[in-house]
Design a protein around this nucleic acid. Structure first.
Length: 374
RNA sequence: UCCCCGGUAGCUCAACGGUAGAGCAUUCGGCUGUUAACCGAAGGGUUGUAGGUUCGAGUCCUACCCGGGGAG
């Protein structure tokens, strides 16, 4: 088995403390996976990611297929070697691009026909193709191609997308098994169903029959209220086997991470810490800090006085604001470093809280600090 | 001293004689499996000055002021 998952402790809330054991090392869960779409977490070196304690990265099948090409990556030794990242990698299937590249694609039962956002060329992504690409990339965890829909979406549309996603999951699993890569690479199935409880339930139960080594909850955090995200995720996790990792795709805000963990989620990923960093939005224990605000022009304090990261130990808000307004590359580098440190620190403290049986205490303290006066 | 070109938002510049705009800058906001070092909103003008022509002038005419270039 490519992947082993051990639940070390389950909190009364439903939160799980665990270990995901991959061919490229152990991932302590619940874990946050930084997003490195094009085989890079924009602004950071792989060495910096290791130093930050990142144990698993998310990369994107569709983007790497287009550029530099999965076959090329395969020829030069696979994604880990190519990007010099020794730890675990999960590759997203391109399912999210079904949602985000809406004007550039056409979905059918066969698969998704994309027009490349780079050069306009046409490409057919089938579930099988997505697996082939991910086999070439060589990630530890593969995601089945799915259809992620917008919010709000009609029941009929959500039902159709969930059904298609299930059928694609079945084909993905078969294709991977036929290839024989299942020994090294673990495929996760994805539950869809929009914001409809019974669709989520049905889709989850259906997917269980395919017996995946891990399950993902997709199609959430696309604009619906947080409570609805939680409701849907809960609907799914309640039906998933306890001994398999659960991945809530594309979340979330710092203040929401513990909520998802309480629903029994083990893995999460989100572009917020990295993208917002580049756009000058810094996450701190006192809430969001928009570094371009004039009030920081001569502020000698670090971004977050409670933060121990390299950036907060060395640089003032005044300096970071200058770098950002001057469009200096270092602003993106330092901001990304800080935001990822912040996310990883939250996850570390959540794991400790589960271990010591005080997840509720952690959340209360966290919320109180976010609501405090900066 | 004369000739030519120019003077419009903080900056660089648009605007057939018909409601003065853009980019950047400034201020503020947004970003959830990255088409994103991105996107959006707001504030900001006696169009160098003073006259004139016209129903109506940033635009045409006159004088002056300022800047650049040329001639002597």
């Amino acid at each position: 088995m490519a992947l082993r998952f051990e639940v070390r402790k389950t909190d009364p809330s439903g939160a799980r403390l665990g270990r995901l054991i991959t061919p490229h090392g152990v991932v302590d869960t619940p874990a946050f996976m930084p997003v490195g779409t094009a085989a890079t977490v924009k602004g950071l070196t792989q060495q910096a990611l290791e130093e930050l304690g990142v144990q698993i990265l998310l990369c994107n099948t569709y983007h790497l297929y287009l550029r530099p090409g999965h076959e090329r990556i395969g020829r030069v030794g696979g994604l880990n070697h190519f990007m010099s990242w020794p730890r675990a990698i999960l590759t997203d299937s391109g399912g999210y691009q079904v949602f985000s590249l809406a004007e550039l694609r056409e979905v059918s039962d066969a698969g998704v026909r994309f027009r490349s956002h780079l050069d306009g060329s046409e490409h057919l992504f089938t579930p099988e193709k997505a697996i082939d690409v991910q086999i070439a990339l060589g990630a530890d965890v593969l995601m089945a191609l799915d259809e992620c829909i917008e919010y709000p979406a009609s029941h009929e549309r959500a039902r159709a997308a969930a059904g298609r996603t299930f059928e694609w999951a079945r084909r993905s699993r078969e294709h991977l098994a036929a290839h024989g890569s299942a020994a090294e690479q673990a495929l996760f199935g994805i539950v869809q169903g929009g914001t409809y409880r019974e669709l989520r339930q049905q889709n989850a139960e259906q997917l269980l029959e395919l017996d995946f080594p891990g399950y993902a909850v997709g199609g959430l955090a696309v604009g619906e209220p947080h409570t609805l995200t939680c409701e849907m995720a809960a609907e799914v996790t309640a039906r998933l086997p306890a001994d398999r990792p659960r991945y809530l795709m594309g979340v979330g805000k710092p203040e929401d991470l513990a909520d998802y963990v309480r629903l029994g989620i083990d893995l999460m990923d989100c572009v917020l810490p990295t993208r917002n960093a580049r756009n000058g939005c810094l996450f701190t224990s006192q809430g969001r800090l928009l570094i371009k605000n004039a009030r920081y022009a001569e502020d000698p304090r670090p971004l977050d006085e409670a933060c121990t990261c390299l950036v907060c130990r060395s640089y003032s808000r005044a300096y970071l604001r200058h770098l950002f307004l001057a469009h200096e590359i270092l602003a993106a580098v330092l901001h990304t470093h800080h935001n990822l440190h912040f996310y990883l620190d939250i996850m570390r403290r959540i794991r400790e809280a589960i271990e010591f049986g005080d997840l509720a205490g952690f959340s209360a303290e966290f919320q109180a600090r976010l609501e405090a006066e900066p």
